[in-house]
Design a protein around this nucleic acid. Structure first.
Length: 238
DNA sequence: CAAGCGATTGGCT
DNA sequence: GCCAATCGCTTGT
């Protein structure tokens, strides 16, 4: 294999690293693996390589759920680093964050996209189950829902924050679990050398126009771009 | 208690 | 490009 480009130093996925600086933590999470053990109907171990994340930093960040101070929904954002913050958006989609920053300071990294490394069939099944659970149209026409999912290439099963959460079966009940605990059913693990290949692009965060131009334009979205794709303009991981 | 609104996605024009 | 889906959380009366 041609190691043409200089490789980034392996990101350290320690709690200390996640607790220090959220922008550094976001880059450390890129290329790491999201792992879900078999269970809850899934026979396979699911593993994904994280390729897109966003940082939300402090109560002053007008795009962050922490902007109103601690509330029942966002309370884990104010806790220690490495914990999962899971919320429901638009009444149907779950999103998974890794809490970052010092204990007491509200910050998190939203996991926006992952590429399957193992267990893609289980991810597909979980996507379908989630669709059936949350969309009346899919309950009314299960065949159409199944056909839609059948047409999704493996590589796209976990692209997008709600698709990532659905592929890994993440739900609100996982809010507060420790993603750095090896005994957690869902957790982060260091990426293999190949997982880390590529370069990091920073762009504005997606879907946060409500925060106003100053905050919406901050380049706090990070995408791990394969070297082969570096030719053109800004990449979309989806 | 009422009401407005999403850190998104999928379907349709 | 536009828009509906769908409901928990937050705020205001």
């Amino acid at each position: 294999m041609a190691a043409a480009a200089p490789e980034r130093p392996p990101p350290v996925l320690s709690r200390d690293r996640l607790a220090a600086d959220t922008l550094v933590a976001a880059r450390a999470i890129l290329g790491a693996r999201l792992v879900r053990d078999p269970g809850d109907g899934a026979a396979e171990r699911r593993v994904g390589r994280i390729v897109e994340v966003e940082a939300y930093i402090g109560e002053g960040d007008r795009a962050s759920h922490a902007r109103m101070g601690p509330t029942p929904r966002n309370r884990v954002m104010f806790g220690p680093a490495g914990i999962a913050y899971v919320y429901l958006v638009y009444g149907m989609h779950h999103c998974l964050n890794v809490v970052t920053g010092p204990d007491g300071y509200p910050a998190a990294v939203l996991l926006r996209s992952a590429v399957p490394v193992d267990g893609a069939p289980s991810m597909r099944t979980a996507r379908l189950e989630r669709a059936m659970a949350s969309r009346r149209a899919d309950r009314d026409d299960p065949a159409a829902a199944a056909a839609r999912l059948a047409g999704v290439p493996d590589a796209r099963l976990a692209l997008g924050p709600a698709r990532l959460a659905a592929a890994f079966g993440v739900e609100r009940r996982h809010d507060g679990i420790d993603l750095l605990d090896p005994s957690s059913p869902i957790r982060l693990e260091p990426g293999a050398a190949d997982d880390l290949a590529g370069s990091v692009e920073a762009t504005p965060r997606i879907g946060v126009d409500y925060a106003g131009p100053e905050w919406a334009s901050r380049p706090w979205r990070f995408v791990l771009v394969p070297e082969a794709d570096r030719s053109g303009g800004a990449e979309r991981a989806r």
